[in-house]
Amino acid sequence: MTALVGVAAWVPPGRVAIEEPAGRLGLSGMQVKIFRRYHRLGEVARDPDGELRDLLRAALERLDALRGREHLVRYVLHARTFPTVVPYPHDPVRQVCEEFGLGHAAVFAVGHHACASGLLALDAAGRLLAADGDPEGLALVLTGEKAFTAEARLVPDTSFFGEGAAACLVAAQGERDRLLAYATELRGDFDTDDPETALEFQRVYADELASAITAAVARAGLAMEDVGVILPHNVNRVAWHQVCRTLGYPRERVVLDNVATTGHVFCADSFVNYRTAQDRGLLRQGEPYVMAAAGAGRGATFSAMAFVH
Rank of each mutant, 00 (worst) to 15 (best):
A220R: 09
L222P: 09
E200L: 13
D177F: 03
A167M: 09
A165E: 01
Q202E: 12
G174A: 11
A220T: 07
Y182D: 01
E196S: 14
R178I: 13
E225Q: 15
P195Y: 04
L199F: 02
A150V: 04
L222V: 02
F201W: 03
A181F: 03
Y182C: 02
D207P: 01
A165Y: 01
A150I: 03
C168G: 00
F161D: 03
A218F: 01
R153M: 14
F161S: 08
A212R: 11
A166Q: 02
T149C: 08
P195C: 05
K146M: 13
A215F: 01
Y182Q: 01
A147K: 06
E196W: 13
R176C: 10
L199V: 07
M224T: 05
A167Y: 00
G188S: 10
C168Y: 00
D157K: 15
R178K: 15
A152C: 05
S211N: 07
V217P: 04
F161P: 08
T158N: 08
L169I: 11
V170D: 02
A223M: 03
T184C: 12
E200H: 12
A215S: 14
Y182E: 01
L169S: 06
V170H: 04
C168R: 02
A220Q: 10
Y205F: 15
A223Y: 01
G164N: 12
V217F: 07
G221I: 12
Y182R: 09
L186M: 08
R178P: 05
P156V: 09
F160R: 13
Y205G: 01
A183D: 06
E196G: 12
Q173Y: 01
C168Q: 05
A181Q: 09
A171I: 00
R178Y: 08
Q173P: 00
E175N: 12
E208V: 00
E225K: 15
Q173R: 14
S159K: 06
I213W: 00
D177W: 06
A212T: 14
E151L: 11
T197S: 14
A147D: 01
A198I: 00
A215I: 00
E163G: 12
E208T: 02
A150H: 14
Q173N: 10
A172W: 00
E225W: 07
F148E: 10
L222E: 11
F201T: 00
L199D: 07
Q202G: 04
E175K: 15
S159H: 05
P195F: 04
E196Y: 11
A166T: 03
D193M: 12
A150G: 13
L222M: 11
F160S: 10
M224S: 05
T184N: 09
V155I: 15
D194F: 06
G174R: 09
R178S: 11
D189E: 15
A216E: 02
A152M: 13
P195K: 10
L169E: 05
S159Q: 06
S159N: 07
V155E: 09
G164T: 06
A198N: 13
E151Q: 15
G188L: 08
Y205K: 11
R219T: 00
V217I: 12
A220M: 10
P195V: 10
G164F: 07
A181I: 10
L186S: 11
